[in-house]
């Protein structure tokens, strides 16, 4: 059953949530003991070193990965109690690697509508919203540049009109101007339409701009959480001070062991500059 978005509801609530993997006969926690709430209609910037568990955190919200411990609630309902398809329509995810579906740009942009038997959206309007020319509609999607693909991936997700938008490094392949267009588009939806955004970024300046709250994830735990100004200016933990003040960025990058966050993080090169802020 769908639950309507509500201003006074928590869009997301994590209760001691965790996710583990078995590797070489050993259990490794990608994420452990995560607690916290995200107010509907706000934007949370998730920052932290590579392999910290940020992408895993996102994938628990739309059940692309299942929590192995604790609970994750979306609009008051635990993710496993949702009809999965309804949940994923309500909680959109823009992946780090912008994978294009076969066919043209138009095919990609109308994919969500076709999946749900909904009327096809105005492709030209969508393209202009993400700063791309309407002529692009009939181009094979695989021929686009990385930056164009990333914007198409975002637009493709927005066609579903999600109430929560999860962005995993969604502007990492974009130049400054294109990144600003995407950022403005998402934040306009947050401020004017009550969209809730959870945005994983390595760019601390971006985190400062977009985040009503900032969550710092390190070694599979949320080590700092609070209003952006407070977290960035006066981190409370040693981890926060090390990461945010950049006194030991190399150490921070090396600290969380092992591979990156499961299925959502394949083949990514994180930008060191972003982590040093």
């Amino acid at each position: 059953m769908d639950i309507p978005p509500s201003d006074d509801a928590w869009a997301l609530r994590f209760v001691d949530a965790g996710r583990r993997v078995e590797m070489d006969g050993e259990t490794r926690w990608l994420l452990r003991g995560v607690g916290g709430r995200v107010q509907a209609g706000t934007a949370v910037a998730v920052i932290g070193p590579s392999g910290a568990g940020k992408s895993t955190l996102l994938s628990l919200c739309n059940l692309m990965q299942t929590p192995d411990a604790g609970e994750v609630h979306v609009f008051g309902r635990e993710v496993r109690d949702w009809d999965v398809r309804s949940l994923r329509r309500r909680v959109g995810l823009v992946m780090q690697q912008p994978v294009m579906l076969p066919g043209t740009v138009r095919d990609n942009l109308v994919a969500a509508a076709r999946l749900h038997g909904a009327p096809e959206p105005d492709v030209s309007a969508i393209l202009s919203e993400v700063g791309l020319p309407p002529e692009l509609a009939e181009r094979p999607a695989r021929d686009l540049s990385g930056g164009q693909k990333q914007r198409i991936a975002l637009a493709r997700t927005l066609v579903n009109r999600p109430d929560i938008l999860l962005l995993d490094e969604a502007t990492s392949a974009l130049d400054r101007e294109s990144a600003a267009i995407v950022e403005a588009l998402v934040m306009r939806r947050v401020r004017e339409q009550g969209l809730t955004a959870v945005w994983v970024t390595h760019d601390l300046e971006q985190a400062r701009r977009i985040g009503d709250e900032i969550w710092l994830v390190a070694e599979g735990c949320v080590v700092e959480r609070g209003p952006a100004a407070q977290v960035l200016a006066a981190p409370r933990t040693a981890w926060g001070r090390r990461f945010l003040l950049g006194t030991a960025a190399e150490e921070a990058d090396g600290a969380p062991a092992g591979r990156d966050e499961g299925m959502l993080a394949h083949g990514t090169e994180h930008r060191e500059e972003g982590t040093r802020g």
């Binding site: 692309m64 398809r85 991936a153 579903n160």
Partner: peptide, 8 residues
Amino acid sequence: MVLLTLGA
């Protein structure tokens, strides 16, 4: 994965 995240 893309299709599933869109609710396929």
